[in-house]
Design a protein around this nucleic acid. Sequence first.
DNA 1: CATGAATGAGAATTCATTCAT
DNA 2: AATGAATGAATTCTCATTCAT
Lengths: 214, 214, 214, 214
Amino acid sequence: MLASVPGRPTFKRLPRAVREQQMLDAAVRVFSRRGFHEASMDEIADEAGISKPMVYAYLGSKDDLFRACVNREGTRLLESIVAVVADDLPADEQLWRGLRGFFGFVGAHRDGWAVLYRQARSGQPYDLATLRTRIVEVVAGMLRSAVESQSRQARDEDLTASAYALVGAAESIADWLADHPEADPDRSAARLMNFSWLGARQLLQGELWQPSSA
Amino acid sequence: MLASVPGRPTFKRLPRAVREQQMLDAAVRVFSRRGFHEASMDEIADEAGISKPMVYAYLGSKDDLFRACVNREGTRLLESIVAVVADDLPADEQLWRGLRGFFGFVGAHRDGWAVLYRQARSGQPYDLATLRTRIVEVVAGMLRSAVESQSRQARDEDLTASAYALVGAAESIADWLADHPEADPDRSAARLMNFSWLGARQLLQGELWQPSSA
Amino acid sequence: MLASVPGRPTFKRLPRAVREQQMLDAAVRVFSRRGFHEASMDEIADEAGISKPMVYAYLGSKDDLFRACVNREGTRLLESIVAVVADDLPADEQLWRGLRGFFGFVGAHRDGWAVLYRQARSGQPYDLATLRTRIVEVVAGMLRSAVESQSRQARDEDLTASAYALVGAAESIADWLADHPEADPDRSAARLMNFSWLGARQLLQGELWQPSSA
Amino acid sequence: MLASVPGRPTFKRLPRAVREQQMLDAAVRVFSRRGFHEASMDEIADEAGISKPMVYAYLGSKDDLFRACVNREGTRLLESIVAVVADDLPADEQLWRGLRGFFGFVGAHRDGWAVLYRQARSGQPYDLATLRTRIVEVVAGMLRSAVESQSRQARDEDLTASAYALVGAAESIADWLADHPEADPDRSAARLMNFSWLGARQLLQGELWQPSSA
DNA sequence: CATGAATGAGAATTCATTCAT
DNA sequence: AATGAATGAATTCTCATTCAT
């Protein structure tokens, strides 16, 4: 009966893998707009078009569910970056590509970003700390190899601090991007590239960084 | 009645203003270590050494209380920055002073910083968004005046983006600082100054920014 | 269909009676270790190696299932006793055989005993009350016929009380036995026989204990 | 207003100690008639004429509450026995008094007995196991001293078994008593005394029953 | 001023039970 | 015959908030 109504998909008796993704989608949306604590399992189940016990059966407790969201979105984010970065490129090109990947993800998955950045941060130390640390380390590594390619020395602490600064700057702009749906992710990437690569002084003097490709 | 019983110490009937500060101190500590939702009014009252009804009588609901915390700490933070910045200084000097003020506050008020940054973010739209926007605007204004002093034009959006980047970078490093009590705030300020003022390229080439004063 | 796929073992399509016994075995084990309420239908189905709907199809609701367990174990227990008692034996011999049968069952079916005694007791008025009453009546009858064989009178209430005492004593020792797998059931039977028979004999002979005071 | 209605006691704002006893009374009644698992905190709160949060505030979780019930009733039971037993009396007199104390408690606190015996048994190992063991040990000690007063030897295991039998018999009769409000506790005590003492006396005198066959 | 006593409302979680395939 | 998918209905427990003293 229901199935015969055109345009209204039957939501019944789907295989587990499909349902799990639906649930995760719903959970990401709800966590994104409410935050971890304000989100209720009831609302998530509703949003997924399913009853609460199914959520528990498939994805466990609220904590488990949240972790699963963070993991999925975190993995996607990492992949968005890793997919476009190639080790043998010059440092600025790598940074540029990394930023485009990053802002591209944020623009395309605003809810996922909100869960990762706004929600996961404040609470219990989910794997997010790990994820962020990993990103920071990747960036730090990138900087280090760039430095070494110039036969220079740099204190590790300084590199790490720069990486933190860079990641924080990216997050901050991503946050603004997530709240401005009309904004262009690539443009955000370019702006941050200029700021971080050239520095405020250069910017103030009107200098601009230009992508060598594309 | 009770107070008149000899040998029984009179309960301190402190003036309202003092009590309120005690409560806010307690609330900031508790919100800082638990987060908004995990913090219970019971724990806050306990920490303040008073009974719950007093908290409600003086500071209103939990939301009100949290807002009061954010306001007080936010104001202090702004003051830490404003106090050291003078409009007629060159841009780099202003930035340098602003960063020192900022990291100084974070180092001295780790709990306050945690409430402002980690907790207030995730949830309800408290005045924090406002506070952050105000800081961003201050920084953007600083950049604009610097640009204009060079008789140049710059698109407002670009300036804003740079301000966001700068604030985000500062927050990120502040966050790291809050978790490393042994770290030196001034050193953090210097690192970020280098990064943001000179840019990654300059840094990679070994250039360094030097404070003209102090 | 599935069964016709070569190389894929045919799922055992066991006859209903066999399946039911498997389920009851599993249920007795689970009820024994968890108690009625803590036992979940999931765990029982798991233990039986079948899916839940089968349990419902064959044995009905959880209550039904529990009743079925109690019935089966209760019947076995009664049979263990009845099988060895013969009406024409002297009273002490009957009691001795009855106790041996009883403790023999407990030693051999610890799970069954636990279900009967520990679990069924606390809750709903299953047939257990009936079972116990039946046992008490059997014992009371045994005592009565012994008395009458001595041409004596005894108040029915006193006989019933003695039967209760005897059954309670047996249960108490059985309980201890169920927790001590190394203990010898026959030895327990002999101990209780000594305790109860020497008393019962005096009673049967009309002797009475009198309080020295009051 | 409410307080002025005669015959309708005001149930409001009682001191903690009073409320706790009311709650325990209610809990014992509900646990007694429903069993641990079937009893809901809602029903207990209702029965106590109070809201659930108060129960949690004063007595903790459902487990804690149950433990508190068992403790209170167990203590009362022990006191009922200890109060009337005096070490320097002859063994039979001690046993007689102990039984009267025991059955007196059961007759006067049927609900308490039900909680102790029927409910606490089946579930988690609350202190009840301890309580019962303690009682068994007391009885065993009583028997041992009686034996030794006759300069005889007895194997400890046999004494323990007799104690178990005695306690089990008492519980069994108590159970019957709890279901027959019109019955006289003292009469039950006398019946069990007869049954057990006449047996115990023979035992104490070294008599043994021997199986005629096997 | 100050507080112990009290609660309404809602949250997570579980479980017996049934459908649709 | 057999099962994975699905849920209604409880249940325990917590918390912000308010009286009555």
